[in-house]
Amino acid sequence: MAWQIVDRLKGTPDSADKVVTDEMRQKIEAEFAKYPTKQAVLLTSLHMVQNKYKQISDQAIRELAEIHEISPGEVLDTLSFYDMYSREKLGKNLIGVCVSLSCDICGCKDLMKKVKDKLNIGPRETTEDGKFTLIPMECIGACEMAPAILMNEDLHKIESVEQLDDLIDKTA
């Protein structure tokens, strides 16, 4: 690693197609009224972009920087801090397996193995057809349902690996 020099001077070119659509822009501007600063809406805007495109590209960062009146570096500063935003494109469906203590002692490793066996993806990897990404997550606040997973936005208590198998099939 230490022998490479990464060039940050060359950026990706600006694209004519806007990432932040007019509709999204209107939604963001409606949020501005709720806070004293424009930057406060940034987390919400990033969620909007992440949900729609499954990633936050350079173009998105440039546009968001302009909308929120901050530098692109500051957008990246916020973006890169949080687990839910991704610079790389994620799959259409996110399998979020909780790996914290309760879920760990209740067998989350079996779930990870099931996903590996069935879809051939490891942590933060995406299937070739782009349908699924496996995301190990830290405590998702569902310890009484351990081992618990978030399939996209839905919380599930997994009682058996077969149930996970069915759930993946149903989601695909």
Binding site: K34, Y35, A40, L43, T44, L46, H47, F81, Y82, D83, M84, Y85, E138, C139
Partner: peptide, 12 residues
């Protein structure tokens, strides 16, 4: 009193 829901993004 105004009340707004502000979503976080994944950080303990």
């Amino acid at each position: 009193l105004e009340c707004y829901v502000h979503r976080g993004a994944g950080a303990y």
